[in-house]
């Protein structure tokens, strides 16, 4: 019962374009992730939907009703802020009951509903606490309970877990998605972390410099990015600019074979995780001998910096496997890298 549509929305502050002709349709009950760098667009889309940011041109519909000119208080959306923004002078319960109070709704029935919501977000026993007495995670849960009790059918989550510790962030990602689905709400969630968007969303919209670049399900966005920015933003990558001729290109004296590209200038994106590093040659296409220059252990991954033909530097990411002991001993050793042609992503300049 809550769909959202943006039609050609542009937002300007002075000469600064924050959103550039964005059109986006969100179906009822969907959980959408907006992915992009900070100030790249995601947060502005949320503010525009909530009516907190005036638009320069375009139209916004909520449930097929034009709300372009209506005030934030009339849009019935729940906004979840990065900094939580609980009312510091009110208790948890009073924060949660704020919506019904300002709307003049009878509080006696609402109070029971609020209690239910409070147990849903696991805040029992903290009802009379002030926000400064709560942890970040609890504050954000209160914020969500507050939005739900105010009668929101749409939840706009603006980098909601950014201010939280990694562990709590992980928990909340699942917990809140499930809650939203259970209540049948529509949610739009902005973030600049690929993992968070992938984990929580039914569909992902990728933004950069105010433009909507791609809007599709997470798998498609990851596997078939529409341009070099999307390809590079979703995972750490090696990036080059090349000339393709007869289905091959040369970087620093190394020749790569690709398949199905016309001749022309391209940007090449090769994700670090897509490069295969072996100690013995496999004799496959696009295989090169290389020297391992640097090794960084990142946790579940190891990052190798290797040089091909003494001139081409490539970064490779491999899972940290248990078989390899003392990985650091590999520095300076000879190895082999190969690039699967279908994992080399080329985009016309």
């Amino acid at each position: 019962m809550a769909s959202i549509e943006l039609q050609n929305v542009t937002v300007k502050i002075g000469n600064n374009i924050l959103l550039d002709n964005v059109s986006l349709k969100v179906d009822d009950g969907a959980y959408i992730g907006l992915l992009g760098p900070s100030n790249g667009g995601p947060s502005f889309v949320l503010k525009v939907i909530a009516g907190l940011l005036p638009i320069y041109s375009g139209k916004i519909f909520i449930d097929e009703v034009d709300v372009t000119d209506s005030h934030p208080e009339d849009r019935n959306v729940g906004f979840i802020f990065e900094q939580f923004n609980l009312f510091p002078h009110l208790t948890v319960l009073d924060n949660i009951l704020y919506g019904p109070r300002v709307k003049g709704i009878d509080l006696t029935t609402k109070e029971r509903e609020a209690k239910e919501v409070i147990s849903m977000v696991r805040l029992e026993n903290r009802e009379s606490a002030l926000s400064k007495e709560l942890s970040g995670g609890m504050q954000q849960r209160t914020g969500i309970a507050r939005a739900i009790t105010a009668g929101a059918k749409i939840l706009l989550l603006d980098q909601p877990y950014r201010a939280l510790d990694a562990k709590i962030r992980e928990e909340m990602r699942f917990e809140i998605r499930e809650l939203v689905k259970e209540l049948g709400m529509t949610a739009i969630h902005s973030t600049h972390e690929t993992e968070e968007a992938m984990l929580t969303s039914d569909k992902i919209a990728v933004f950069n410099e105010g433009k909507l670049l791609q809007f599709d399900n997470p798998e498609t966005v990851y596997k078939i990015p529409v341009n070099a920015f999307v390809a590079g933003f979703l995972a750490e990558s090696n990036k080059f600019q090349v000339k393709v001729k007869d289905n091959s290109f040369i970087i620093e004296n190394s020749k790569f074979i690709v398949d199905g590209y016309e001749d022309g200038e391209y940007v090449v994106i090769i994700r670090q995780i897509d490069v295969d590093l072996t100690s013995e040659p496999l004799n496959v296409v696009n295989e090169f001998e290389c020297i391992i220059d640097k090794i960084r252990i990142l946790g579940e991954f190891i990052r190798f910096t290797v040089t091909i033909n003494n001139s081409l530097t490539i970064i490779v990411r491999e899972l940290l496997s248990l078989e390899r002991n003392n990985v650091k001993n590999l520095i300076g050793k000879r190895a082999y890298v190969n690039f699967r042609p279908d994992l080399i992503k080329l985009f016309l300049v």
């Binding site: 909530a50 009516g51 907190l52 005030h71 934030p72 208080e73 009339d74 849009r75 019935n76 959306v77 729940g78 906004f79 802020f81 900094q83 923004n85 609980l86 009312f87 510091p88 002078h89 704020y98 919506g99 109070r101 300002v102 709307k103 914020g143 507050r146 939005a147 105010a150 009668g151």
Partner: peptide
């Protein structure tokens, strides 16, 4: 008083006068 807190009150359904009376003024 942080504008974002006033914004939070707006999205919860409070018109500007109510926001001032219930949020800005007490804070």
């Amino acid at each position: 008083v942080d504008v974002e807190i006033e914004n939070a009150a707006r999205t919860l359904g409070a018109p500007p006068i109510s926001v001032f009376r219930t949020i800005t003024a007490p804070m």
